[in-house]
Design a binder for these strands. Sequence first.
DNA 1: CCGTATCCAATAAGATACTG
DNA 2: CAGTATCTTATTGGATACGG
Lengths: 225, 225
Amino acid sequence: MELEKVTIERRAEAKRRYDDACGTAHGLELIGERWALLVLRELLLGPRRFSQLRADLPGLSANVLTQRLAELEERGLARRRMLPPPASAQVYEATEWGLEAEPVIQALGRWAARSPMHDPTLPLSGVSILLSFRTMIDEKRARKLDARIGFVFGKDRYVARVRKGRIKVAQGAVEECDAIISAPPTALAAVVYGGAPIDLLGISGDRSAAEKFVTLFVLPPKVGS
Amino acid sequence: MELEKVTIERRAEAKRRYDDACGTAHGLELIGERWALLVLRELLLGPRRFSQLRADLPGLSANVLTQRLAELEERGLARRRMLPPPASAQVYEATEWGLEAEPVIQALGRWAARSPMHDPTLPLSGVSILLSFRTMIDEKRARKLDARIGFVFGKDRYVARVRKGRIKVAQGAVEECDAIISAPPTALAAVVYGGAPIDLLGISGDRSAAEKFVTLFVLPPKVGS
DNA sequence: CCGTATCCAATAAGATACTG
DNA sequence: CAGTATCTTATTGGATACGG
């Protein structure tokens, strides 16, 4: 009975391979399943809990998330870790190699942003919008700003450091930032990419730094324009 | 009856979306289906016929190939075209935007090449190995070579131009090349990446140019080394 | 609450045979 | 050759229930 199950699993795994020596094909075997790349994306700015991942990827059901996390772990792209007491919560985090998949995620995102079918009004996770800043920053404009901007998305806190045209983003305490932006990620996206008025955002601290910050990012031109 | 079917199809399409404004998620909706990216890859060096695609992707069945091609066409990434008489054959070719997905394919391939689970002895298409040259060329070494190398993979002909550390690859006549390499793509991969002896390859023309050529490419180090 | 496991219905993928 | 049609199997997603 158990043996039979194992045999079936073997066959299933074998079937889903591409049997292709090309690195791209192997990459698809590693992170090509539905949702896998988005789960990995959510881990790129630091450890996340199961329930946070569920909240960030609303269409993903618990059983599939469990399976994707197990696969990422098995393949060496993520690991689960117990936070030390008093938190004592389990978190999932990307491994070094998992983090190195960011250029793949960026290349795909940048390419797809040109799509005429892209709908930027859909919901968006905090990690998504912050990663898009890393992808879409306009170096020339960004050189004019040297600031630390904090972001408050519900209970999550992130800090973006803009300096010399580059941006670094990480989870962290927002207290020492020049400005703090509190808003749903979708509102932030509407302001940065959709030209919505900045008063959709809660801003504290150096207001002008925040105002400059939201103008640093540009989407690539749509296909056919 | 017909209406019902349409409704069901609508619901199905809606279900497979990610409902995520992130460009990466949209990218997955465009080329995230199983095989889609590999089909597109096969179109990156020029038009291919249905049967060539089947031969290049042996694990892909005809019905799925039909479906993937229809989706690529519908999304503006590929088109079907009738070759002028006397050929009068139908071919599939990438659109401009489809060609722009090459960085995505490269990033994924480069990242996955570091995988300890990667098996480079599997079969490989001609397009795959030539694209890998674009990805893996060592600019420093390549600067020492200025040559046109022809490749004969069965009935397919390609030309690689190496110059100033860069490489360009296209379908084309091999007659005016400095050297011509005739070999199954797998053998070429074994020589270039696996250190196999070069006499696995049929070489005509400037032998030393071909010998230099096969040393220009390096794989990234495996994870954990 | 956190995470996993199980069951079920809906789709997608795969194998094979068939047609113009 | 260039696909369709059909049948089978696998995966996905949704709901729900279970253990810590």
